[in-house]
Design a protein around this nucleic acid. Sequence first.
DNA 1: CACTTCGTGATACGGATGTACCATAAAGAA
DNA 2: TTCTTTATGGTACATCCGTATCACGAAGTG
Lengths: 196, 196
Amino acid sequence: MIADALVRVAGRGGLHAVSMRAVAAEAGVSLRLVQYYFNDKSELMHAALLQLERQSAERLAGRLARLPSPPPARAYIEAFLAEALPTDARSREFHFVWTSYAVLAMGDAALAEQPFVAGPDRQERQLAGVLRRARTDGELAVGADPAAEAARLLTLSHGLGTSVLVGQRTAAAAEEVLRYHLDRLFTVPGPAPAPE
Amino acid sequence: MIADALVRVAGRGGLHAVSMRAVAAEAGVSLRLVQYYFNDKSELMHAALLQLERQSAERLAGRLARLPSPPPARAYIEAFLAEALPTDARSREFHFVWTSYAVLAMGDAALAEQPFVAGPDRQERQLAGVLRRARTDGELAVGADPAAEAARLLTLSHGLGTSVLVGQRTAAAAEEVLRYHLDRLFTVPGPAPAPE
DNA sequence: CACTTCGTGATACGGATGTACCATAAAGAA
DNA sequence: TTCTTTATGGTACATCCGTATCACGAAGTG
């Protein structure tokens, strides 16, 4: 798929390395073909962004599907956040390109609307719902507000993700901060760390 | 200054709108002059980044200088984080351009080294130092780990900042999340919110 | 068969960009 | 005075980019 080629190109050289020609070469097709399927460059960029979003949602769904049912709140949230950190090379590519799009969207409200506003809003509500249920089950620390905690979780994981991408922190260090955060949010302990 | 012109151009159209000609026009000088002071485009970009960093440090220093001495830990940290959120137009421009550079640095380890690794590392240590002192003074919640808390504060504020830039959250909402976070971190209450 | 649509290729065009080169004028040093 | 350095402008050049155009075969349809 051509949109995949765009992601690969952007994963190597950033979004500013994405040109119609570079994408065509990466996909092994002619420039004309890229023009044929996506008339514009903007259409191509938009399509690649939609595809990134879809793939990410699928990966998250896969993680959640592997949970026991009903999923424990902490496991659910850990699955959620595991997808939000750039741990392996594939995930790193994804987050790099995704963040590049996010910066692009900071100067273009129309581009931002669906993926960067509506998407995180939905995730935040979803997370808040899980936290509300956990609170009635008495699993949350006292005084925890589900909506505020959902916002904290998402923004914290995004911030950690960029600090990893930029090379300030290793993915393992970011996961440790996240674990620390969850330990202070939940009253029930998380899973024991794997022995080394 | 020419580097200021670069920041203004990037603040409007993002870093990809920055060209030698655009910067020259914004600064009201000839293209040749931009070439004269900064031989390369990469030198120009680098210089503008350094200037952004310096200005940000100066603003932070100004905030900290206006604090009573010795500054209360919470006030100190609030000053720190106030600088980290895009509240007004000037701050928004700064964070937009800064984040654009951060994304650029994700694909260029050399560019990232000084401003995006060493800088946040230093800030994190600085914050951890303040938190350590607050802990010995009994101002921190029980079980709080200064290093982990510093990491949480910085990454949380960065994540909140990008969510504001992208339009998902208002700056006021971000400040509220931050206040919530600090309320759970400190045992002593923060300043009362201004009556409306 | 004739014709239209779809998929793919090669290439041309206008514009923007980074960089290089030439020129000029002021100022200071010899 | 002559020379060198500093500061500034104008312009040309090669390259790349997005887009448009022409071309051609395969496939399906009447």
